[in-house]
Design a protein around this nucleic acid. Structure first.
Lengths: 204, 204
DNA sequence: CGGAATCCTCTTCGATACTG
DNA sequence: CAGTATCGAAGAGGATTCCG
């Protein structure tokens, strides 16, 4: 790395490692699991190929990302986070919590990738401790929260089933607003969940 | 801002706001309180003045920083974080926790600004809940931790008094190592504190 | 086809000098 | 004190090309 802040400070040092453009978004993608170079480039959607290659090189040199050659028959290489790299999860959660407030609800033109709901749910409730089971239905997506852990798809005997659209889901978890949200079952449990998430966003 | 990631994602949006070089370090400085332009430039130590001006302009436009003209007799302007800007604290704490691990202990050549110890202590125990009172003595610095809140200077009847140098302080809180650390009083309470901090670093 | 390296343009950065 | 102006160097963005 040629450009460093030259400060003895953990924040400055962290930014020396992952503060360059695209680096944290690469980490965000790799948190979901290993990815090939091309898939990474696709999902980041807009990163120049030379920049992606340069970032991966630096991240690998700093022990944040590891390059692994798949055994057989795949015959391709994947990039994955090291243990230290996975330590970026709370950083990304904190950024997401902070950014969500000013992001605003999604417009109708936003198209979400498959599986977005469970990711969004995981990010939202990351630091909140919640009891009970909840099933969320947004568009064709299904994801559930069972005693604090995320489950893809529905769940039997959920305490509450929450059905809404992406904008309603946003308002529910970011503002605590229930407009456009249909709740079946224990709406008080949901209210407690929302409050826990909201408190987290405010406190943590 | 002319350069955005164009993604509907809270992380990408957060980085659109504070992902540019120097922005988060500006926020870090302003977390301690309002600062004048020149003091900000001094403490960031190396930021080009045009870049600092540009960052402040963007941060202000996005409601993260506010510019305020001091009433009298000071006749100068200060920059301070808005409420939304103060929401970056957990982001900076998360970055600091993550960065500390690979930062390594300070060398003898590092010179710390006055008051660094209480800041470092606050960052280290940010998310840990701790009981008891501890007084830390590092060089000429004194800072204390009383039932989870930071106090500048010493404290009476501390459960434990911890005396060490900056490198020992680093190892104590980052690695949980006690080499070069002298403890008077309840060393078990200190061990619990260190464990809480370490768990936090690993989990959160 | 996956995984880049190259070329080119444009913007930004860093350093210094200068001004209301 | 609080910035703006200037300028060379570095990095980003976009398209294309190359290699196994």
């Amino acid at each position: 790395m040629t450009k460093t802040y030259h400060q003895y400070c953990p924040v400055a040092h962290a930014l020396d490692l992952v503060g360059e453009r695209w680096s944290l978004l690469i980490a965000r993608e790799l948190l979901h699991g290993p990815l090939r170079y091309t898939d990474l480039a696709d999902q980041l959607c807009g990163v120049p190929t030379n920049v992606l290659a340069a970032r991966l090189r630096v991240l690998e040199a700093n022990g944040i990302v590891a390059k692994r050659r798949l055994p057989r028959p795949a015959a391709s290489t994947v990039y994955e986070l090291t243990e230290y790299g996975r330590g970026l999860e709370p950083v990304l959660f904190a950024l997401a919590h902070w950014g969500a407030r000013s992001l605003g609800p999604p417009g109708k033109d936003v198209d979400f990738p498959a599986g977005w709901l469970s990711s969004a749910l995981r990010t939202a409730v990351a630091a909140a401790h919640s009891d009970g089971s909840f099933e969320f239905r947004v568009g064709t997506e299904r994801a559930s929260l069972v005693d604090g852990t995320i489950v893809e798809g529905g769940v039997e005997d959920a305490d509450a089933i929450v059905e809404t659209d992406p904008a309603g889901f946003y308002h529910l978890l970011v503002d605590g607003r229930l407009e456009g949200v249909r709740v079946e079952g224990d709406s008080e449990a949901l209210a407690r969940l929302v409050q826990a998430v909201g408190l987290t966003a405010a406190l943590v």
